[in-house]
């Protein structure tokens, strides 16, 4: 158990609790809740064991599902973005990802925004399609995805800036 492992475990627990106890009850403008628990997936180390990463993401989603009584929608959205994270990383950071030198705390703002945008949008599209589960409500899905994504991206970028680790 080195320092990094403990950091990631703490982050996992804190994010689940913050999401379940505070952010699921924001209901800004009646329906907007930011889903920032995916920061765990965004910040997981790049060279992490992929099977372990998939299992952890599934667990993360399942905990959120338990708290919000939503079946398996968060779990499904989480493992999909966890599985496709390398693609998002490659398209956002290009070469520096290939050499495994990316640190999310010291990349340029534009690249970081692109990465967060890709991940959050994918996650929210899957999440709301599964939540509403009815393609006759496709406008509602689009509306919810759009506004919630903006909210989530803003909060996520703020959290990433505020809790930047000073040693890196």
């Amino acid at each position: 158990m080195n320092k990094d492992t403990i950091l990631h475990i703490t982050r996992f627990i804190v994010l689940v609790l913050v999401q379940a106890l505070v952010l699921n009850h924001v209901n800004f403008l009646g329906f907007l809740n930011p889903y920032i628990y995916i920061i765990f997936i965004l910040l997981a180390p790049i060279n992490i064991n992929r099977s372990l990463f998939l299992a952890l993401s599934f667990l993360l989603g399942l905990f959120i599902d338990m708290f919000s009584d939503s079946g398996g929608i968060h779990a499904a959205a989480c493992i999909i973005i966890a599985f496709f994270r390398p693609i998002a990383l490659r398209s956002a950071f290009g070469l520096s990802y290939e050499f495994q030198t990316v640190k999310l705390s010291n990349v340029r703002f534009g690249e970081r925004l692109a990465y967060v945008l890709l991940m959050v949008l994918t996650h929210h599209i899957i999440l709301f399609s599964l939540e509403i589960f009815n393609f006759s409500h496709i406008l509602l899905i689009a509306k919810k995805t759009f506004f919630t994504s903006i909210f989530t991206i803003v909060i996520t970028m703020l959290v990433l800036v505020l809790f930047r680790r000073s040693d890196s």
Partner: peptide, 22 residues
């Protein structure tokens, strides 16, 4: 293909939960 198979399995489980919840 163990990662991909694990991914498919977990996805299937979560989809089953989702369909049950509806």
């Amino acid at each position: 293909n163990k990662h991909f198979l694990l991914f498919l399995m977990l996805l299937l489980i979560s989809l089953i939960f989702t369909i049950q919840s509806h």
